[in-house]
Each structure stands twice: as structure tokens, then as C-alpha cells.
């Protein structure tokens, strides 16, 4: 199949970027979207041009590195799919495809489609953990956790940190990302202990990074490759309000 591309090219964070036109003639339906970009880059390199920089690594939907805004949607036209899992069979022969980096006030373009998501790490460093010492721990079966509780915690813990929730949010809010971790840990008995302090610190950092307010448009859960539910945001709100009213300690 043949496709036309309009790809965001930008030299660095300070410079202004623009959409540049490309076209590819020998795209196959079974190609993944990123393999299509590989193909383009091969052509560009041999022509002596700079290839398009884009984030990618595991190419199986779990590392959360890839994140492209494709045809006006985070991770492209399919719901619950990461960019690397998107295949060219989802596009029509002759179609024009727009590719832009994920945007958000707290995400900066590094070059072309590569972005800086270190803000997520900083949010996690404020409390996205259980403060257990490494090396020794109580017997794993000492505290029973019901099947449903564990499954539900897993649903929240499945976040891959790709940033699609921020990219698709009209407010650039990181509520889904932050709440998924808060909720994962709040749902487990071992994580409850410090849940109030955790939510306050993580939300504070989230705000500090410049992420926006959550308006509950629910767009994030549609675009999330792991289909993380917005009920995590409700839970974060609950934990936050509780902590605000009761205080973070005792």
C-alpha cells in the first residue's frame, strides 16, 4: 500500500517545529506502525537526510516508551492499543497519516517525536511505593488478600507510564497516571499504611510539574493502552479528600 505522511519535525525543545510531508510506496499491511517509520528512516538515511527521531523500545506494548499522536489520536485510531501494537492494516491505501509527539505542558519535545516524560518519574519518587526495606520481608501468605482485591489492584498497577492519558486530555492532566499508582497501593493492605501521606505528596508533585485539572471527560481511559479505568481517579480523589480532612498521619 501507499501512504502519505505528515510528520512533526523539530530540532530541539527551544526551536519551533512543523509538519513535514513524506510518502512511502511499499508499505505492507502486516507492518507495525513503527516498522513503517523504520522504513521511512531507512529511505531518509540513504538520501542523506536526518531520520525521524521517535521513542520506542520493547515494541510489544509493555515498556511504555512509544507514544505518538497519530491522526489526531493518542496511539492512533484504535482504543486500548499502544503505538507499537498498531499495524498498518488499520489504515487505508493512499491515506494521509498525521504524526505528532504527545503534547502536554509537562511534556517537552526533545527532538522530532521524542518527548521528555521525566515528570512521571518525579511523581513516582514522591510516594509511588510502599516504604518497605529491601532484603527481608514477612511471609508472603501472612496477610491474605482476596482474589478480587488482587485482581483489582492489578488493574490499577498495569499502567505502563506512556503518557497517552496526558496527551489526550484537553487539560494535559496526569490524573489517570497518578491515580493508578495511588489506587494500586491503596487497594492492598500493605499499601494502606501510608496511603494518606502518599496521595498528598504525589498530587503535590503532579501539580508542581504543571499538569492540569481533571475534568472527568473520560477520554484518558479510552486511549489508555492498558485500559486503566477512570474509577482510579475517583479513588484518588477519595483518598485525597480523606487525607485533607483527616490529616496524613495516624
Amino acid at each position: 500500500m501507499k501512504i502519505k505522511l505528515k510528520i512533526w519535525r523539530q530540532i530541539n525543545a527551544e526551536s519551533k517545529g512543523k509538519l513535514v510531508d513524506y510518502s512511502l510506496d511499499n508499505v505492507e499491511e502486516d507492518m507495525s506502525f513503527l516498522e513503517m517509520l523504520d522504513l521511512l528512516n531507512e529511505e531518509l538515511i540513504l538520501k542523506g537526510e536526518r531520520p525521524v527521531e521517535f521513542d520506542h523500545d520493547c515494541r510489544e506494548g509493555i515498556c511504555g516508551t512509544c507514544g505518538l499522536f497519530i491522526n489526531g489520536r493518542a496511539h492512533g485510531p484504535l482504543a486500548g492499543t499502544s503505538t507499537c501494537q498498531l499495524h498498518m492494516r488499520s489504515f487505508k491505501d493512499g491515506e494521509t497519516i498525521y504524526i505528532e509527539p504527545f503534547r502536554g505542558g509537562a511534556f517537552n519535545v526533545i527532538r522530532d517525536l521524542k518527548i521528555d516524560r521525566s515528570s512521571f518519574d518525579r511523581i513516582m519518587s514522591k510516594g509511588g511505593y510502599i516504604s518497605t526495606p529491601v532484603g527481608d520481608a514477612p511471609e508472603a501468605n501472612a496477610v491474605p488478600i482476596t482474589h478480587d482485591q488482587a485482581e483489582s489492584a492489578f488493574d490499577s498497577a498495569a499502567c505502563i507510564g506512556c503518557g497517552a492519558c496526558v496527551a489526550t486530555c484537553k487539560n494535559g492532566s496526569a490524573a489517570l497516571f497518578t491515580s493508578a499508582k495511588i489506587t494500586h497501593l491503596a487497594k492492598l493492605p500493605q499499601g494502606k499504611v501510608e496511603s494518606r501521606a502518599r496521595v498528598l505528596k504525589m498530587v503535590e508533585q503532579m501539580d508542581e510539574e504543571g499538569f492540569g485539572h481533571c475534568t472527568n471527560t473520560l477520554a484518558c481511559q479510552v486511549e489508555c493502552p492498558q485500559e486503566i479505568s477512570v474509577s482510579n481517579i475517583d479513588r484518588m480523589n477519595w483518598e485525597y479528600n480523606k487525607a485533607k480532612i483527616l490529616g496524613k498521619g495516624d
Binding site: I130, P138, A140
Partner: peptide, 16 residues
């Protein structure tokens, strides 16, 4: 033990 303490949500039986 270590992983459970860190909050890794391993699969559980219905009894917990």
C-alpha cells in the same frame, strides 16, 4: 515475600 511487601499484585486464590 519481598515482592508481596512491595505491593506486587500476584494472582491469588479465592481464599486470599
Amino acid at each position: 515475600d519481598q515482592a508481596v511487601a512491595q505491593g506486587v499484585p500476584f494472582a491469588r486464590e479465592y481464599g486470599g
